[in-house]
Design a protein around this nucleic acid. Structure first.
Lengths: 126, 126
DNA sequence: GTAAATGCAAACATTTTGCACGATT
DNA sequence: AATCGTGCAAAATGTTTGCATTTAC
């Protein structure tokens, strides 16, 4: 496989943005090289994910967000304001064990976000 | 607000299907009344959700799935075979407390699914 | 009768595919 | 030269909107 400029640009973008949708990666890449097509972004993200250099997370509504593979954490999405907070993977350890025991289900804590109401929005409600 | 046949049909569909995407609801409804348009399905689902009669869950890829509001549980989605398992809400209780203490984040356990590898797929890998 | 709800067509957003052209080895 | 990667256009998918018509109250 070849390390083309486009592929390097996508990796650089994710390193800088930490996590981003395909659209956001595209805009970031196009600031440096405007000719890069969004199709290439999609194909590159897919490829880099197969190589396990990156991974994607579903935050709920809207497109998935991609990040470097080592950038592992649990995402907490507020369904009122949309804010995305992060928590260390370890908060899921106990749940992880429970699900494995009860269902044989091996949890991938980082792939899906958790949804709820963030501190600020909770305060506003009361 | 009016209880139209279409709205009743959507509720009936969700009662029978337990959880379903807008597309699946539409197909189910159209078996009885083929004239119902998918636009109406979308609008009805949105309305019924505002009334808190139903809710939706993001299982990861693909469209959201809707279910009756009282039908609350945690969804476990296998990212290898796509199978969706269910677990009682209570398995999230401890995590729920941890997140509230650490982030002030009030978890909505049912809105997003958990992703991982199901028992069968885990067995196959080994 | 009136406001609300529906159906239809078209717009929209996101992602995927086919194919010809260009770059890399 | 052969293969792999890219850009472009078009298709596919999922969802939303505008508007005329119909329906429930």
């Amino acid at each position: 496989m070849r390390m083309t400029p486009q592929r390097q640009l996508v990796l650089d973008a994710l390193r800088e943005l930490e996590h981003a949708t395909p659209e956001q990666v595209c805009r970031h890449v196009q600031r440096v090289t405007p000719s890069v097509n969004i199709t290439t972004i999609y194909r590159t993200l897919e490829l880099l994910e197969e190589l396990e250099l990156i991974r994607h997370t579903h935050l709920g509504h809207g497109p998935p967000t991609y990040s470097l593979h080592e950038h592992q954490h649990v995402h907490l999405v507020c369904h009122r304001c949309g804010r995305v907070d992060e928590s260390p993977r370890a908060v899921m350890d106990q749940l992880c064990g429970t699900l494995r025991a009860a269902h044989g289900f091996v949890l991938d804590a980082a792939h899906l976000a958790l949804s709820g109401t963030c501190r600020d929005c909770t305060r506003e409600t009361t």
